[in-house]
Design a protein around this nucleic acid. Structure first.
Lengths: 117, 117
DNA sequence: ACATCATTCAACCATATAGTTGACTGATTC
DNA sequence: GAATCAGTCAACTATATGGTTGAATGATGT
């Protein structure tokens, strides 16, 4: 596995923009919790919120844009579930910086070596 | 060590809103990179960007609101540096959900063990 | 005291976001 | 085939965001 500064720290910048932006809303984090254990139909998800179905639909589109959820169509229902890869991007970014905080020299060393790539 | 759903999954909801929102902007992530190794004066940070100092100042305020950076005043300079705790909140949230994705109990376990660090 | 530097504030602009309602599209069921 | 259900789209509103410029504040240097 290749760890360039790009892949590791910024992944694709726009991806991280989308991912963190999606995670910044409590309704969307709540949706992720709701589908964490198993996939759910969109209507099923929407039941939990007082907002309109259209609003929930938009939140889900925002989560899809960030690739945090994936959609499976079956008949007239759409089922959404978590997507591993996007979350892992966000996590890598955070993990990387935690190194500095926590005095973890390994990530510091790694960082310095990759500084201006 | 108390693990309520609140403390564990949402920490304080508003905190996570601020944290992820702050991380969603590439300039702000770049500022975090810039101060990762050592604290820097605000003017020093601002030099790297083509935007106005006032704009950078706002970005830093946004990072402070999320408690991702802390400020130290010395004479007429303000120095900013990374703050461990906030980042760790975001990371915990993500780690927790990665467990579901990856079917990996280790991250959940890890989360639980590190809850009050 | 005065000028200068570091930084913020206020007012403003353009665009994005989070929500609404009502019309639309595709499957499903009667 | 008409009615219903799942979900999206379009138009709209209100507020937030990211940027600008110019004036204001507060410490430092002369």
């Amino acid at each position: 596995m290749q760890l360039t500064l790009n892949s590791m720290v910024e992944s694709s910048t726009y991806d991280l923009d989308y991912i963190f932006q999606a995670l910044s809303d409590p309704t969307r984090r709540s949706i992720l919790r709701k589908i964490a254990k198993r996939e759910r139909a969109i209507t099923e998800v929407a039941e939990s919120y007082s907002m309109s179905l259209a609003a929930v639909s938009k939140h889900i589109q925002s989560l899809e844009r960030a690739r945090l959820v994936t959609r499976r169509k079956e008949g007239s229902y759409s089922y959404i579930s978590l997507n591993a890869d996007a979350m892992s991007s966000a996590d890598k970014w955070i993990q990387y910086y935690r190194g500095f905080w926590e005095g973890n020299l390994k990530s510091l060393k790694n960082f310095i070596e990759n500084e201006d790539k």
